[in-house]
Amino acid sequence: MKPFDYQRLETPEHLGHVEAGRFLGGGTNLIDLMKHQIETPDVLVDVTRAGMDRIEERGDAVLIGSQVSNTDLASHPLIRRDYPVLSSALLSGATQQLRNKATTGGNLLQRTRCQYFYDTARACNKREPGSGCDALDGLNRFHAILGASENCIAVHPSDMAVAMAALGAVVVTRKRDGTEGRIPVTELHRLPGDRPDLDHVLDEGELIVAVELPASPPRLQSYRKVRDRSSYAFAVVSAAIALDLEDGHMRNLRIALGGVAHKPWRATKAEAMLEGKMPEAALFMEALEQEMADAEGHGHNDFKKILAPRVVVAMLRELTGLGGN
């Protein structure tokens, strides 16, 4: 680990007054990467005591401070009542110990678990731009099937972000010059394109202050995480769904997928096909196949093209009361 300077941010307003550096949340991802020489910041700005640790109800929205821990967020009564998809996504992630430390902002900006990204002996465009991508023809079982590029096929590993994408959450930020930003979670992360080293659209030194959840979310919600072991495992594929059923018709349908892309993937094509329709198994499958039309496997992860639609269809059937077969 490279020696670094440590600073503490007192309030978001002081952002312009501290040395520019990497923000330190719970450190459960950043410190790991520093130990392995993958991240080598000169300055850490500890944001855990900057007063961004509250969950507030604001009429048209719920505001989640970026330092609220994953545990506190998952167990908050309001979240459990109105946003159960978020609570269950959070609880499916990592372990209790990690969730106690992990913060909302840090969770959003955690980096990929691509094994080649973690191994400094291997080529990785995300870690070292221009070096190549060893995952492309390598061990890529966990990698992307949607929106990837030949430069990077990594996925974003967060469960929480997938639920937030389905809920239409907005990230509230503050830049060093004091201006505020508002970015939908679905637009926070980038697709890799030819700059896989950039995970997200935030400027350097732009702080996540809070995440805003719109009030009155759809009533029917569900999160499903497909994984190799029953706990403490990253998603092979995950899905968050929210919808209302009005007179037997599906309304406000949002489907977000995890484990398939460089960002939480909103299945907008499928959503459009299903919005306003009556639930029907064949229709679900058709919509998901449509969504997957451009999906591309890289060998070990080909099965995700079958798995992802099956997961979503199973969830839709359950949510809409169609049940199994």
Partner: peptide
């Protein structure tokens, strides 16, 4: 990874 002879799964995650 048989191209390099290196194990890639090197932590408990």
């Amino acid at each position: 990874d048989d191209r390099f002879g290196s194990f890639m799964t090197r932590d408990f995650a």
